[in-house]
């Protein structure tokens, strides 16, 4: 009797675990199937066409791709130095009495839902941008800044964790040769934790590019490519969030599915690079 239950239990868990793999494959397949109509209609030009006009049944993804790339790039430029600064502060400068509370609050802030960062952006940050740059304040720049604030806690926390993997004795050895804190950070900690730090930046990039709610409030969903960062723009997730529930034709839906597939493929690639190239999983017992 026991033997039968044993077999059932083993196979049930295996079945479910494999189910997770199949689910991921299923997600790709379904998104692909639903994209077919759009792929057939536009082919490769979907990625290069700048016109997104549902009323004309014309769908070009370039403005959304451009917006995703630029807003993420802005966010990274702003967040990376800040995250490094916060991480150095937390791992090397802060007194232990403030290290823990500040560290824990940063981790907790990383858990605050992104929709709240979006709301903050809309009500408190948009007016500031409007006052400084004119216009309506809803813009690519606003989206980039809000996104950078949203990924900052995650980035700072993982960068700090990576820096903390440097053994104390290694740092002490550099101090024992007369190094300053900055010498130790740049010559010992950063080279030692390089892979982890870069990996966490790329992981944050992967998250930022798929982030929807923090930017949807403040970007404007305007399918236009503009070099002026103070103009409204759109990104792939912003387009999806704004238009999915309203799409009214097969081709429109299919184009949105193609955008979803594109976003999934981009994120999957970026996250895989971070995971496999930089952050080889620490296996317990190894």
């Amino acid at each position: 009797m026991s033997a039968i239950i044993d077999k059932i239990f083993a196979n049930a868990t295996k079945f479910i675990a494999i189910g997770v793999l199949l689910l991921v494959a299923w997600i790709f397949t379904v998104l692909f199937e639903h994209s077919l109509e759009s792929i057939e209609a536009f082919g490769f030009s979907f990625l290069t066409e700048t016109k997104w006009a549902p009323n004309l049944e014309k769908f070009g993804a370039l403005p959304a791709i451009y917006g995703s790339v630029v807003s993420t790039f802005l966010a990274m430029i702003l967040a990376v130095p800040l995250a490094i600064g916060v991480a150095i502060f937390l791992s090397e400068i802060a007194h232990s009495k403030i290290k823990t509370p500040v560290g824990v609050s940063i981790e907790l802030l990383a858990a605050i839902p992104s929709v709240i960062y979006g709301m903050w952006g809309l009500f408190y940050f948009v007016p500031i941008i409007r006052d400084i740059f004119g216009g309506i304040g809803i813009s690519m720049l606003t989206a980039g800044i809000v996104l950078s604030i949203m990924i900052l806690p995650f980035m700072a926390a993982v960068t700090r964790d990576a820096m903390n993997t440097t053994p104390d004795i290694l740092k002490e050895s550099a101090y024992a040769l007369g190094g300053t804190k900055w010498d130790v950070v740049k010559d010992i900690i950063i080279p030692y934790a390089k892979a982890g730090i870069i990996g966490s930046f790329i992981l944050a990039l992967g998250r930022a590019i798929g982030e929807t709610m923090a930017v949807t409030f403040v970007m404007g969903n305007v399918h236009k490519i503009s070099a002026d960062l103070t103009q409204p723009a759109t990104s792939i997730p912003v387009t999806l969030a704004n238009e999915f529930a309203e799409a009214d034709s097969g081709l429109y839906y299919s184009s949105l599915f193609e955008l979803s597939l594109l976003l999934l493929v981009i994120s999957f690639t970026i996250i895989s690079i971070a995971k496999f190239y930089f952050l080889r999983r620490k296996r317990i017992g190894q």
Binding site: V24, W26, I27, V30, L31, L203, G206, R207, I209, G210, E211, T212, P237, L240, A241, F244, L256, F257, S260, L261, L263, L264, S267, F268, I271
Partner: peptide
Amino acid sequence: MMSAPSIVIGAF
């Protein structure tokens, strides 16, 4: 999948 964009799951 833990870091994949959740809006895509919505589409699926």
